[in-house]
Write a protein that binds this DNA or RNA. Structure first.
Lengths: 351, 351
DNA sequence: ATGTGGTTCGGAAACGATACCAGAAGTAAA
DNA sequence: TTTACTTCTGGTATCGTTTCCGAACCACAT
């Protein structure tokens, strides 16, 4: 099976290879009839230009990369799918790469850029701002999207899409407070000092402070797990510790739905009811939350819209149509079965 | 930011470019010291060979593709991760592409092969055998892996990895029969006549026949959903129909865990208990099954092992180390909370 | 006739790497 | 010293494409 090349097409058409190239690439300097003839032959022969040769010659390889930290992100599939659609619409190629740790990501990005001559990078589901200055030195546009994980604050030398984790977290805690809860435990993330989870934790603290409710450190649990902090296992383990601690509480706010699922399981196994005895709230809005028993009260992120915007943002940057943008999406508090009024019996005087 | 090329390295080292190439590619014909010196300079300069140029020249572009049908497959993330590890170990590149329909897949594969000069393709989570003859005509090795979805029968002009869906399905139904169930409903898949779901359905029928239990068509539900048959929504909808049908049953076998989750939810909303009133069994062994309430009885597929083997199989084919292999993995019946003895009260005489 | 300008085209030089080939240098045997 | 062989090296053609440059052609004004 020999490759069919642009030369073959030229020969079959009785034209020069430049003419074929012009036909393929929509160059203006070509006769309309010639172009149609060439295109017909190309269709007939099933010729497809060799991408390596193209990219080698072109200064602009039509290719972007998507780097994913934390592939267990439940939105992963749909996000990828949406980005892919955008990429195809632009006639670009896309490479995906999974990165294990924050340290890896820069190396991987660098390697990809040189090897594949990328035009842009999307960073999915991580907190990469540490390296954003370094990345900025490469002259490749990049967009962070903390879809399903959160955003960060600080100086903006990059583009990103996110929800306002701080505010949304506050929203959820306020909702629990409005239900009458005063002793609210939180399962947060503590593996990275500047992480998403910390923003959600800050939102929790702010909400309590605003109501002048004392923050009890014994109700704050932080998952320490570099690889995959937002797992059901971790939620389960933290909730077991919480239940065994003897500290009283009437609600648990897990800063990710997967954590919440683990929390629910632990509470169930302890023989307590949700929400009659303890309310559980999550964050993210994963699909299973609707089918879980009890259905999960959560903050639902507009994942599809975020993914689409992320891709469009990158292409705008590539085409020089805009500078850095920081788009914050509104999230929605979805009230479901897992939260209700507090059970006074769960409260006892502290020593 | 200028690209740094093999010429720059050669100049800096005071050697010819062939020597640098030899150093990079572990050719035998090079002095050890020279090689070390070149490699040192390469490290210092951070030089990375341009992949397009390499692939253009080489007859063998070190690149494989992974085509994914049904990106919602819950194992997707871990499977990709494992395959990626194998690919990196072989110093190959990997492109991933999502395909919408069975019709798309061949076109996509063809285009990829020519454009990127692939050495091999892995088809994930689909039933592609229709096209396997056509694919065989391309001289590119490919492996089907029905990880999380099943396998097929028929003539073997390809390699694949799978579990024995027919036998495993029988295993589950036998388990339910052993518990005492006689009226077992099944939520299967009916969108594709030759699909995975059909194999599992056949296993169900076989198990019943072996015990001489009459098959009641009113207990057989087939999801018709090209895009994503194995969804919680579909399980939910089918179970609602089943419950509303007035036909009696004491157990439901959903041929995918996601379907089972939807089934559980519908049963719960109907005010029935699992497993006291109705037993529910799934298939696949997704993570959430362990944290769901009730915990899901299921057939657990050895996903990690399957993914690893799939990748290794492809590389063996590429390297000509083996011919077509069809590896069937043993799956495990995991008995959990969602199944128990039948409740006689759920049975009533049929008209 | 000659010059001018605009289309449309083909030739040829890149792009960055690999691989073949020939030759230099070194070693061992005659 | 010559021959033969091994080990190592550099030059160069080549992969398939794009792009620059110049040429051919036509129309039209000079």
């Amino acid at each position: 099976m020999e490759e069919i090349t642009i030369k073959d097409i030229a020969r079959r058409c009785g034209v020069g290879i430049s003419t074929v190239s012009r036909a393929i690439n929509n160059h203006p300097d070509i006769n309309t009839e010639t172009k149609q003839m060439v295109m017909r032959v190309i269709r007939e022969t099933g010729y497809i230009p060799n991408n390596s040769a193209r990219n080698l010659k072109r200064t602009d390889a039509r290719c972007i990369a998507v780097l994913i930290k934390g592939i267990t992100n439940p939105f992963f599939s749909s996000v990828i799918q949406i980005i892919e659609t955008q990429v195809q619409k632009k006639k670009y190629a896309m490479v995906m790469q999974h990165v294990e740790t924050y340290e890896d990501e820069l190396d991987v990005a660098l390697e990809l850029i040189k090897e594949k001559r990328l035009r842009g990078i999307i960073f999915l589901g991580g907190a990469y701002r540490h390296d954003s200055q370094k990345l900025a030195k490469l002259n490749v546009p990049f967009v962070f999207s903390t879809i399903g994980t959160g955003q960060d604050e600080g100086e903006k030398t990059y583009s990103n899409t996110a929800v306002d984790d701080f505010a949304e977290s506050q929203k959820m805690v306020n909702y629990l407070l409005d239900l009458g809860h005063r002793r609210i435990a939180i399962i947060a993330e503590g593996s990275d000092a500047e992480s998403v989870g910390q923003l959600r934790l800050e939102g929790y603290k702010k909400a309590l402070k605003d109501r002048e409710i004392e923050i009890d450190e014994r109700l704050i649990y932080e998952v320490k797990d570099q690889a995959d902090p937002y797992s059901m296992q971790n939620g389960y383990a933290m909730a077991q510790q919480l239940l065994a601690s003897g500290v009283d509480f009437t609600a648990v706010f897990a800063i990710a739905d997967f954590l919440a699922v683990g929390v629910c399981r632990a509470i169930h196994e302890a023989g307590l009811r949700i929400p009659e005895d303890i309310s559980v709230a999550g964050f993210d809005g994963i699909a299973i939350g609707e089918f879980y028993t009890p259905q999960l009260t959560t903050i639902k992120q507009p994942v599809e819209a975020m993914a689409e915007k992320t891709a469009k943002l990158l292409f705008n940057l590539i085409e020089g149509k805009c500078g850095h943008e920081h788009i914050i999406f509104p999230a929605e508090l979805v009230e479901r079965e897992s939260t209700g009024k507090p059970n006074p019996e769960m409260l006892f005087p502290h020593i």
